[in-house]
Simulated scan of single mutants.
Amino acid sequence: MARIDYCDTSKSNERTREILGKNRNANIFRMMAHSPSYFEQYCRLGGAIRNKGELDPVVRELAITRTGILCEAPYEIVAHKRIGRNVGVTDEQNAALEDWKSATCFNETQRAALAFTDEIVAMRRPTDATFKAIATKLTPAALVELQLSVGFYIMTSKFLETFEIDMQPVSEVV
C-alpha cells in the first residue's frame, strides 16, 4: 500500500487529467499528480526518452529494465519488460537480465550497454574501460541518450520505492 494517498484526480486541473488519461491513470502517475508541474515535465522527458532520439529501443529497454532490477523496483521491472517485448526484446533476454553476464542472448552492443548501466547505477561513474567499450558502439547522441535513460529510470525507480507505489495488473502497467 502506498505510503501516502494517491492524488484525488477529481480535483486536478484539466492538463493533469489529460496526461493521466494518456498514461492509463497508472499508479505512479496518480502519485506524481500531487505536483502537477513536475508531473507534466516528468512525462515530457519520459516521452522523449521512449519516443525520440536515435538510441536503439531494444538497448534502451534492456538498460531501463536492468536499472529497475538493480534499484529493486518491481513495478519498473514489470512495466519495462512489457515495453521491451513491444520493441523487440526477446523473452529470453528479459529472463536473462538478472544475470546477463553469463547469458549468450545479448549482442556486443547490448552487453556493453548493460555493463555501462550496471556501473552507472552502482558507482559514481562508469570506469574508463566500460565507457570506451560503449562509446565505440554508439554515436555521441545515442550514448547521451543511454546515460540519460539510465539516470531517469534510477530516479523513477527510487520514486516508486520511496512511495511504495502499488503494483497494477500487468495489462495496466505503463
Score class of each variant (00 low, 15 high):
R3W: 11
I4N: 05
T9M: 08
N13L: 07
E14Q: 14
E14D: 14
E14T: 13
R15N: 10
T16F: 02
T16E: 07
R17Y: 02
R17N: 14
I19H: 03
G21H: 06
I28D: 01
F29H: 15
A33E: 09
C43D: 09
G47R: 11
I49T: 05
R50Q: 12
K52E: 14
K52H: 14
D56T: 00
P57S: 11
E61C: 06
L62D: 01
A63G: 10
A63M: 03
I64A: 01
T67N: 05
A73Y: 10
A73L: 04
A73K: 04
I77F: 06
A79L: 08
R82A: 13
I83D: 02
N86R: 14
N86F: 06
V87T: 08
G88S: 10
V89A: 13
Q93S: 11
A96F: 06
L97Q: 00
S102L: 08
C105A: 06
Q110E: 15
Q110G: 11
R111H: 07
A112I: 01
A113E: 01
A113T: 02
A113R: 00
A115S: 14
F116T: 01
V121Q: 02
M123N: 15
R124Q: 13
A129T: 14
K132T: 13
A135M: 05
T136A: 15
A142F: 05
V144Y: 13
E145Y: 04
L146T: 06
S149W: 00
V150M: 05
V150F: 03
Y153L: 03
S157P: 05
S157W: 01
K158P: 00
F159K: 03
L160W: 02
E161G: 10
E161A: 07
F163R: 05
E164G: 09
S171R: 12
